[in-house]
Deep mutational scan, measured.
Amino acid sequence: MTGIVKWFNADKGFGFITPDDGSKDVFVHFSAIQNDGYKSLDEGQKVSFTIESGAKGPAAGNVTSL
């Protein structure tokens, strides 16, 4: 699925993605970002991701920028 990064705190390594389908915002951890180098996201960035079952509920996985 796709969405827009609502916010991401690079110091803490997590944030939230707002899915394009209008569903509830999804937690994203830096370890789910699939790019080389520094793993961070920018507010407003368009991303593709999967929904994984995290310890505290749904979380984004396999996050790639579009």
Rank of each mutant, 00 (worst) to 15 (best):
V63K: 01
Q45T: 11
G3L: 01
E52A: 10
G13E: 02
A32R: 07
D21W: 07
L41S: 01
G13P: 00
N9E: 04
A59E: 15
G15A: 02
S53I: 14
F8H: 01
K6P: 01
P19F: 04
S53M: 15
I33G: 03
S65N: 11
F27A: 02
H29N: 04
A59L: 12
W7H: 04
V26F: 04
K56G: 11
G15D: 00
S31Q: 06
Q34G: 08
V63I: 05
S40V: 13
A60I: 03
D25A: 07
A32C: 06
D20M: 10
Q45W: 09
A60Q: 01
P58E: 09
D36S: 13
S31F: 05
D36W: 11
G15R: 00
A32G: 07
F49T: 00
D20C: 15
F27C: 03
N35E: 12
M1W: 10
G54C: 10
L41Q: 01
L41Y: 03
N35K: 13
A32H: 07
D20R: 05
K56N: 12
K6N: 05
D42E: 15
I17R: 00
D21E: 06
K39E: 05
T64L: 14
S23N: 08
A55L: 13
G3A: 02
G57E: 04
S48G: 08
K24F: 09
A10F: 10
K12T: 06
A55H: 12
A10T: 13
N9I: 05
A10L: 10
G54N: 11
A59T: 14
N62I: 09
G15C: 01
N9V: 05
G61N: 13
F14V: 06
N9H: 09
N35R: 11
G13F: 03
K12Y: 10
S48K: 12
D25S: 06
Q34A: 12
G13D: 01
F16H: 03
T2V: 09
T64Y: 12
I4F: 11
V26G: 00
I51N: 04
L41R: 01
S65G: 11
T2S: 08
D20T: 08
G22H: 08
D11Q: 15
L41K: 01
V47M: 02
D11S: 15
Y38Q: 11
Y38E: 10
A10P: 12
G15K: 00
F49W: 02
K46Y: 10
E43V: 15
S65E: 10
G13S: 03
S23M: 07
H29T: 04
I33A: 03
V63W: 01
G61S: 14
K6T: 06
V63D: 01
A59M: 15
A60P: 01
E52H: 13
Y38R: 11
G22Q: 07
M1C: 10
T18M: 13
